[in-house]
Write a protein that binds this DNA or RNA. Structure first.
Length: 112
DNA sequence: ATCGTGACGAACG
DNA sequence: CCGTTCGCCACGA
């Protein structure tokens, strides 16, 4: 079979979503970490792109809010409203933000 | 097929 | 710690 792309009936995004689903409640992971676990080492941007493209259906099954940038900050730019919601949910899950709106990976980072 | 864009990140100074 | 630059590459127009 020739399969080049084929496959990936689920495509690249599906693969990324599968990893995000593994992040436990009360924890956060960076885009780069998710990419790495998904076998996409240098594709952190693709992870962000994938989450940005979440369908309304997947948005309820994929814990997208648990993915933040490597600096510990929420990274949504184009949608300020979503960023606020993201923080709200994370705090509800027990993740804390310091006075600079930053999350400490030492305490809340996902340790695979 | 080319081009601009972007939920990123590492490297510099 | 802060701003800037550069590399990566799928996606949509």
């Amino acid at each position: 079979m020739t399969s080049k792309s084929a496959d990936v009936p689920d495509s690249l995004y599906r693969r990324i979503y599968a990893v995000v689903k593994k992040i436990p409640r009360g924890r956060v992971a960076s885009y780069g970490q998710v990419a790495r676990v998904a076998g996409l080492e240098r594709h952190a941007r693709m992870v962000g792109y994938a989450l940005h493209a979440l369908s309304e259906g997947d948005v309820e099954t994929v814990p997208w809010q648990r993915v933040i940038n490597a600096q510990g900050y929420i990274s949504i730019r184009s949608n300020p409203m979503a960023a606020k919601i993201q923080r709200k949910i994370l705090e509800h899950e027990g993740v804390e933000f310091n006075e600079k709106d930053k999350v400490d990976f030492k305490k809340f980072g996902w340790k695979k």
